[in-house]
């Protein structure tokens, strides 16, 4: 992503103040994109979340610029079978724990991550709890379902 493309995207009218414009990029380009974003003044990575959309994983980065007072959301799609993407913790140090959390709960592998271990669940936990297909027969997860 070069500077002109970037300006074109971010000049779009903001729909929601907290989400800002939403940009979908290719997963192979993510490190390049976030480096440009950091240079352009989006100095804070406020939130990094992952969504399990049954056929893929979607990673959502929410950036905020403390100079421009603007938000921006970047989304990437990952393969459901082999979810792997490069880590952005070299650009935004706070991504270190965000990515560990996503690895812990979704099993997404972040390449070049300095310390990819479970964060919230105990060590040696089986499976990835926030995946939609996690322990579907466990009655404890179903007690409140209306049939």
């Amino acid at each position: 992503m070069n500077r002109d493309e970037f300006l074109e995207i971010t000049d779009n009218k903001t729909l929601d103040a907290s989400s800002g414009p939403v940009v979908e990029v290719d997963k192979l380009k993510i490190l390049e994109v976030v480096s440009v974003l950091k240079q352009e003044g989006y100095d804070m990575l406020l939130c990094l979340s992952c969504v399990d959309c049954s056929d893929c994983f979607e990673i959502v980065y929410n950036f905020y610029s403390t100079f421009k007072k603007k938000s921006l959301t970047v989304k990437i799609k990952l393969d459901r079978e082999y979810p792997e993407v490069v880590s952005v913790s070299s650009v935004y140090p706070c991504a270190n724990w965000y990515e560990r959390e996503v690895f812990d709960l979704f099993g997404v592998i972040f390449a070049n991550h300095p310390d990819l271990q479970r964060l919230l669940m105990p060590e040696g936990w089986m499976g990835y709890p926030l995946r939609k297909d996690y322990a579907p027969k466990d009655s404890r997860l179903r007690w409140n379902e209306r049939r």
């Binding site: 103040a17 804070m44 990575l45 403390t66 007072k69 935004y92 140090p93």
Partner: peptide
Amino acid sequence: VEYAISGANLRASGVKFDVRKDMPY
């Protein structure tokens, strides 16, 4: 800023970021 600290902790370090002002709800 790199670690996305916010609230009073961030304002004590010299960045005036307050959601009530910057993204009013």
